[in-house]
Design a protein around this nucleic acid. Sequence first.
DNA 1: CTGAAAGCGCTTACAG
DNA 2: CTGAAAGCGCTTACAG
Lengths: 329, 329
Amino acid sequence: MLTQKVTAKDVAKLAGVSQSSVSRVYFEGASVSQKTREKVLEAAKELGYRPNEFARSLITNRTKIIGLVMKGVQNPFYPEVLKQFTSEFKKIGYSILFVHTNNDEIQKDDIDILLNYHVAAVIITDATLSLNAMEEFKDNKIPVVLFNRKIEKSSFYSVCCNNLNASEAIGEFLIAEGCSTLAYIAGNANTSTSIEREKGFTTILKKHHIQLEKYSSDYTYKGGYDIANEIIAKKHLPDGFFVANDIMALGVLDALRENNISIPFDTKVVGFDNIEMAAWPTYNLTTWEQPIDKMIAETMAYLIKEIEHYTGFAKNIEIDGKLIVRKTT
Amino acid sequence: MLTQKVTAKDVAKLAGVSQSSVSRVYFEGASVSQKTREKVLEAAKELGYRPNEFARSLITNRTKIIGLVMKGVQNPFYPEVLKQFTSEFKKIGYSILFVHTNNDEIQKDDIDILLNYHVAAVIITDATLSLNAMEEFKDNKIPVVLFNRKIEKSSFYSVCCNNLNASEAIGEFLIAEGCSTLAYIAGNANTSTSIEREKGFTTILKKHHIQLEKYSSDYTYKGGYDIANEIIAKKHLPDGFFVANDIMALGVLDALRENNISIPFDTKVVGFDNIEMAAWPTYNLTTWEQPIDKMIAETMAYLIKEIEHYTGFAKNIEIDGKLIVRKTT
DNA sequence: CTGAAAGCGCTTACAG
DNA sequence: CTGAAAGCGCTTACAG
């Protein structure tokens, strides 16, 4: 094993062809005769040749890197999404540059990373982007998708579960189950998911002349646990809870249980996401399943098309999920 | 906003200096006068200049990318590790290329990704590497650390919690708590963590003339849940369980609870990792806290030194964690 | 299909 | 400290 400094030139010499031919073998779409291809491949194998990605990117001005920005790694929903995007993109030769943000809106330093590496595309899983930042990506012809978050502006492409339909269905379901007082426990106030889930739920309650009790929380287990304890302390328990995501719902469930409140008899709980833990026997949480596979497929289809030929086309895509009934209702 | 194609040459022209001077301003360590630096910076700002990372890497043959390989995204321990590495490396200008593997030993396709991108270093969080693959990294002078996994070969640098001490302490603790029959629930059989935890635990049991009941599982919630159900079915319950990681321990706890086995009275359970969920009131799991912060700091210190000046120096680093006593003992 | 040559945007000796 | 020039390892017109 030589100290790995084999270039196309070396391969060319050994194969007895020009450096351009070597390049063509590794560049899909270029035309090379079967014979040269074989010679090159053989020589390359012997020398341990590996095309230099940077030289490549320098010329083509494009990379095989997807920037994936994530905030909430504590919510198991997102690591799962990360894993699936990574495997799916790997199949078509793309790698993932992982960016972690602490803010709901991505900041300049993270945007710079994405721009410096000329990523082929960016996926933002649970954060948003300022209009200015979006402009920068547009200028660089880098397609962006907001995954599980949306912005009511025509300049963003987003892929979400259909939150409105979902929360309406959840409302109807809880009412059909006999609830006549209902509470909504919201996630972070400025997130599109929490807002839409509240909206759909409210619509249905209004239709049935039920007033919504609304509580604010933050999409974390502890947030759900704490707010449930506050509600319990008030000695006034609604017939049912719609909790904006599963991880909060687990906190709610634990708080209720600690206070010997029997579920689904004393009150009912519905979550959102269908994370793995929702199915654990301790929780057995009724929840709304996000169609992750379809959401990922949709995201990738768009991105691949845009990488091929950038248009900047924007749209809010919403995909239907489904209710998973377990033992908390 | 122009269509972002500003090069050092453009900046040079506007600033009235040579392209080399522009380059020097952005290359730390190069000497430039205060005056040219200012002129360049001003021109760069006006044009929105951004040094091209690829051109850079092409020459220096090094990148600011760290390859991070991860297997078990389902175990919350690892997403947390990913997040912390990402934030810490970001502070010193490095980004994370995320690689997901399905295998306990990293395969060729993933290694190729790391090599193709000439990552500055690689971290493998819960998988291992063949000796051959390690050689490839060595040839390319890419430092590698095994995080939370180790191999008894002198060629790997690894950073782990001190699993032997930990499991001995857990053994002593359970015995002091009055257990006279004890079981160990192992994780994936070929992992260093599971092997060492068993070893330390066994040592202590032997010392106290207690025979180990050993059960095999796979480091997942379901694995823990299933094996616990099997044990319960045998109508023979040990006084205490040491479960090789927390996520399995949660499964064990749920199975015991479903069978109305009262903890810590009928039996006791100790986990390992101290993941966030271990502290949830439903579980309140006694466990061993892995010193993540220290493990990460140690990993980074080594990697930074090796990136600066590669030696290939290898060692198994073990850092002490501590017992967190909660309500399952 | 193939080769010679230009050039992507930088860094880095080499002079001055 | 600074500029002119070579060169990193590729892709891609341009001829043939």
